[in-house]
Design a protein around this nucleic acid. Structure first.
Lengths: 349, 349
DNA sequence: CCCGGTGCTGCAAGCGCTTCCAGTCCTGAC
DNA sequence: GTCAGGACTGGAAGCGCTTGCAGCACCGGG
């Protein structure tokens, strides 16, 4: 494993010049640069990460904290972040903290703070004041996606408004008996999203003077299979069957559609279903949904972090210092497909 | 940001003793250790990763190279690896190389070799001889999952045999017109798995003297939606409709089931479907499949890597040096559910 | 009483880079 | 011809830890 010293002696240059040449710094003659590059290539030299980080104070490494990696939304965000970071020559250190709060705690204190991360991107992570302070204290950029991180840059969508919009779509079609599939509060108390979307649903119902039947509020775990099981239970037992379902995620919407089919209900003629998120499966099921491109959000988060690190200043030298919005609302799109229609004629009066 | 020097002076000890005390080394008196720990806690000291890595040569960081992060199999492996690594106090650096070979190349040379990774876990990655040599040259453990990495430890299932088994299951039920959903070779030439499973299917068919109708070989992209579209096309155009489908993944099997329903075909009475992998969705669809627990494979891969790093020797000091199998076949399970049955009676002779 | 161990401890030498600073050479203006 | 200034260059001082080594106190055996 060749070090920079071998490269220097092979190139007939000093270590200092080789370092400057290879890292693209100024004040190196074209000849020296070329000599250094050639020698480096011949020896297969790659600078030691730790040594250069230690010396320069920069890590070229960004941490991503996610509660899960198995769900479409999170893996899409991850994909976007990974893409943008790889392009920028940054490493991505992944912390899949899952549901366990104690794991999250140890990740925060033992890992994140070890000065080895230049920035942290946190997805759907709700942190306590003290935790945020802890993070901000190390003076590294923090970017949040889909979760409130007071004090940090965030990329978010207006979940409550969008949930309201989705519900309104059903109401405007003429539905009055609208069920809502939400998260299971017992599963993960830190996962605030279901509650927010539910508020949007309830606000829309209330605004139109519609009753929110407790039987129509069905909790599942945000997966297709969980929602399928929950929807079956609801459709099988509800004293009055809803004519529409607003699911807090597309996976759950798909689960609801599958359950409906099981009951011989035709979507959308017997049951309208609207989802939320923009899952790839939505098209196959003709799902009406609000699409939010998590991959793009991941990319944006990574770019925001890089910008906060001053990584983009090189491009526009002379211009003003980059202004990074503290709170960016990511665009969404209401995609109307074939899973929503006017409610069926009342069967028996 | 307190350094070890501050801790040392606060504890009234030398830097050396503090270092030994905090990293759990022997030859430190209980008193010194406690003093060091107290001082460290009071100052909120966390050792600099880069400095300690540089000095010790150990990184506590393992790289994971995956072709995708969005598909169930890969995200499950990722989850397992992440879990085991987090428990061991190791960092996980993720390289989502995607389909692009040039990205893979740059990842390998620019990142992996930068001495910052203690080991590499590669999932479904087919490497050239030179690439493997390149990796082995840096003298770091490499663990492969689901892909042949000659020279490296691998964790794998016998895809060809299992595909044959799945096909045989259909044959034994009496099916003779068996379609196969495989990968699209044009999409990713490096993804060898579909070809291997297809060989198993063909071997089973041949062994039973059954014809492999070209119309029944349908290529898709290993997603539900892709398989759905492909299966629809096949079911709509095949001159002679198959009575069973063996899909090279559970996602594709689900896609096939959805397509079948679209054609009014009842699974399993009109069409038997068997998948492969053990996707969580399988239960919801009553899918007969061969289950392979990728999460467990990820955990095992991580543990294997740690073992190769000698990370487990502490537990069993005095015992023999850990022997790591170079090639571990991971157990699988044939799960028979309700998507397979005897073929339908021939409709018109 | 002397001596080899044993158990801790601290000094100091790195780990492999980056970067400050001083120095050299060369240019062009005066 | 002189000199200021710019363009490069190399020496050397770190970055913040780990660890080899030497030193010291203290033990028990001879």
């Amino acid at each position: 494993m060749a070090g920079i010293k071998e490269v220097a002696s092979r190139a007939g240059l000093s270590v200092a010049t080789v370092s400057r040449a290879l890292s693209g710094k100024a004040n190196v003659s074209a000849r020296s640069r070329q000599l250094a590059q050639e020698a480096a290539r011949e020896l297969g030299f790659v600078p030691s990460y730790h040594a250069s980080s230690l010396a320069s104070g920069r890590n070229h490494n960004i941490g991503l904290v996610v509660p899960s990696v198995n769900r479409w939304y999170f893996s899409s965000v991850l994909e976007g972040v990974s893409e943008a970071l790889l392009d920028a020559g940054y490493d991505l250190t992944l912390y899949n903290v899952g549901d366990q709060p104690e794991r999250r705690r140890s990740v925060l204190s033992d890992f994140l703070l070890r000065k080895r991360l230049d920035a942290v991107i946190a997805v759907a992570l709700v942190l306590g004041e003290d935790e945020i302070q802890q993070l901000l204290a190390v003076h590294r950029p923090i970017v949040g996606i889909g979760g409130a991180l007071p004090g940090a840059s965030t990329i978010r969508i207006d979940d409550e408004r969008l949930a309201r919009l989705a519900t309104d779509h059903l109401i405007r079609l003429g539905h009055t008996r609208i069920a809502h599939m939400t998260g299971d509060a017992n599963l993960n108390r830190d996962f605030k999203l279901p509650g927010i979307r539910q508020r949007g649903y309830e606000a829309a119902m209330r605004a139109s003077g519609l009753a929110v039947h407790p039987e129509w509020r069905v909790a599942a775990d945000f997966t297709i299979q969980g929602a399928y099981a929950a929807a079956r239970r609801m459709l099988g037992t509800a004293s009055e069957r809803p004519t529409a379902v607003f699911a807090a995620s597309d996976e759950m919407a798909v689960g609801a559609i599958l359950a409906a089919r099981e009951f011989g209900l035709q979507v959308p003629y017997d049951l309208s279903v609207v989802g939320m998120d923009g899952h790839e499966l939505g098209e196959t099921f003709g799902l009406t949904t609000i699409s939010q491109d998590p991959r793009g959000q991941g990319r944006l988060a990574a770019r925001t972090a890089l910008e906060l690190l001053g990584e983009t200043r090189h491009d526009s030298d002379g211009g003003p210092a980059p202004q990074v919005a503290m709170d960016q609302e990511y665009p969404t799109e209401f995609v109307i497909r074939t899973s929503t229609a006017v409610p069926p004629e009342p069967a028996h009066g």
